[in-house]
Simulated scan of single mutants.
Amino acid sequence: MGRTHLPGHAYEHVAAELRGAILGGDLVPGTRLPRHADLAQRYGVSEIVIRQAIDELKHAGLVDTRGRGGTWVRERPVVRRVSSRRYQADRGPQTEPRTSFTDDQGIEWSQYRLDKVYRWTEACDRLAGLFGVPVGTRVLERRFVFYSAGVPAQMSRPCLLASDVEGTPVADPDNEPWPGGTINQLRTLGIEVDDITESVGTRMPTPEETSVLRLRPGVPVFTITRLMRAAGRVVEVADPIVIPGDRTVLDYHVPLPPPAS
């Protein structure tokens, strides 16, 4: 193949063709790419251009390099679905211990692990605005890392109002993980969650998120801000929930009411 004369950098065209082959299934996960010298000859470019193209594919999370072992099409991790109906698992009935997370992951309770850190703090501007309370209101900040069969799969920062939970079993981290999650926790206090809203965004992870979730270069994350309400009052703010973008499909079910007559 001769040198390309299309606009743009040569490495971008090489990367685009290899990306198309990977995403189109011509290069399946586990396939080793040809040597740099062979790719350079195929595309009529220098090996420097090939290295630039491979670097772009690495940052996109499509290939891995193994030192002198070559470059391989990256194995695609199992995709988990997070449905708009996922919280039904928390509402019960609880015939056996479970949460919306264990249902999403398709795991048994024994395969579920939750790392947690609790602290009492004062609501900042953003947190107070989400709760609809004055800045400085006392809240319980919880930081969770969720593991599925030993693999870190999600981070979250769910906060509760001290006026609702202080001095109760819900404020004791030793009671985690709690079957039914926050919904069941609040139910034990006479607070029935009846509405949940989630705002979803995407971004590149922070260094901490990359380390904790064991993310590879180029993998973005979903960020979710969740508000739980009871009788119109916000009773929990999870901001943010962080989920690896290469392991998750956000699957929403939107029932439509019959048209007005």
Rank of each mutant, 00 (worst) to 15 (best):
G150W: 05
T95S: 15
E141S: 07
V139F: 09
R143Y: 04
L127T: 09
R138I: 12
G106C: 10
I107E: 12
R142G: 05
M155W: 02
V79F: 00
E141W: 03
D115A: 12
D115M: 05
L140G: 03
P97F: 07
S84Q: 07
F101R: 06
C124K: 11
R85Q: 07
A153H: 01
W109A: 12
Q111E: 15
Y118V: 04
I107M: 09
F131I: 08
V133C: 13
T95W: 13
R113K: 14
R76H: 10
W120R: 04
L114H: 06
T95H: 14
D104A: 14
T95P: 05
Q105H: 09
L140M: 08
E122C: 01
P93Y: 06
L127D: 04
L140A: 00
P93S: 10
S156D: 14
T102G: 11
S83N: 08
M155A: 08
L127A: 03
E141I: 02
A89V: 13
E122G: 15
V151Q: 13
V78N: 10
T99D: 07
Q111G: 06
G150F: 09
S148I: 00
A149Y: 07
Y87P: 06
A123H: 06
P77F: 08
V151G: 03
D125A: 15
S100C: 07
R119Q: 14
L140F: 06
